[in-house]
Computed example of a mutant assay.
Amino acid sequence: MADLYNSNAPKKAANLSVNSDLLKKTRALNINLSATLERALKEELAKREAARWIDENRSAIRSYNEFVEQHGCFGDEFREF
């Protein structure tokens, strides 16, 4: 599977607006904002890429599922469970 993004790309500054109380409480706990944001963005990117892949392949998935319903899975006759 291809990487979601280039993890070796250089860092780039970004201006963000964050709830002030949330920011205060995370700073009080020494939470690394950059690392936390990168992790959250990576998770969101993966979720959206997966949803996009499913959408793009919906027809093929539907066809495969219909085939399996009608003919069963390859090797079913050899299954012992």
Score class of each variant (00 low, 15 high):
Asp3Lys: 15
Val68Ile: 15
Phe78Tyr: 14
Ile31Pro: 03
Thr36Trp: 12
Leu16Asp: 01
Glu69Ala: 12
Phe81Asn: 09
Tyr64Pro: 00
Ala46Asn: 06
Val18Thr: 10
Arg52Leu: 07
Ser63Ala: 14
Asn6Ala: 10
Ser34Ile: 05
Ala9Arg: 09
Arg48Asn: 08
Asn65Arg: 14
Ser17Trp: 13
Glu69Phe: 11
Ile31Trp: 00
Met1Thr: 03
Ser59Gly: 00
Asn8Met: 08
Trp53Arg: 05
Ser7Thr: 14
Leu22Ala: 13
Ser34Cys: 03
Asp21Trp: 12
Lys42Ala: 15
Lys12Ala: 11
Arg27Met: 11
Phe67Gln: 09
Pro10Glu: 03
Ala28Pro: 01
Asn8Cys: 01
Lys47Thr: 14
Ala51Leu: 12
Glu49Phe: 03
Asn19Ile: 11
Ala51Glu: 11
Asp55Gly: 00
Ser63Leu: 13
Pro10Lys: 13
Glu43Leu: 15
Lys42Ile: 14
Arg79Trp: 06
Asn8Asp: 14
Asp21Ile: 15
Glu69Ile: 06
Gln70Leu: 14
Glu44Ser: 11
Ile61Met: 06
Glu56Gln: 11
Glu38His: 07
Ile61Pro: 00
Ile61Cys: 00
Arg52Ala: 05
Ser34Asp: 10
Asp55Lys: 11
Leu22Ser: 05
Glu69Gln: 12
Cys73Trp: 15
Ala51Gln: 08
Phe74His: 07
Arg27Leu: 13
Lys47Met: 13
Glu69Asn: 10
Asp76Val: 09
Asn65Ile: 12
Thr26Asn: 07
Trp53Phe: 12
Leu29Ile: 06
Ser17Ala: 11
Asp21Ser: 10
Arg62Gln: 06
Arg39Leu: 15
Leu22Arg: 05
Ser34Met: 05
Glu66Ser: 09
Leu33Lys: 00
Asn57Ser: 04
Asn30Ala: 07
Ile54Ala: 04
Gln70Cys: 05
Leu22Glu: 06
Arg39Asp: 15
Asp76Glu: 13
Phe67Arg: 13
Ser7Lys: 14
Gly75Ser: 02
Leu22Thr: 11
Phe78Glu: 10
Pro10Val: 04
Gly75Lys: 09
Arg79His: 04
Ala13Pro: 05
Ser59Asp: 04
Glu80Asp: 09
Ser7Tyr: 04
Asn8Tyr: 01
Asp76Leu: 11
Leu16Ser: 02
Phe67Lys: 14
Asn32Thr: 08
Val18Tyr: 08
Ser59Thr: 09
Asn32Cys: 07
Asn19Glu: 15
Glu66His: 05
Leu41Glu: 10
Phe74Thr: 03
His71Asp: 02
Gln70Ala: 15
Ala40Gly: 08
Ser17Leu: 15
Asn65Thr: 10
Ala35Thr: 13
Glu44Leu: 13
Arg62Ala: 06
Leu4Tyr: 07
Lys42Asn: 08
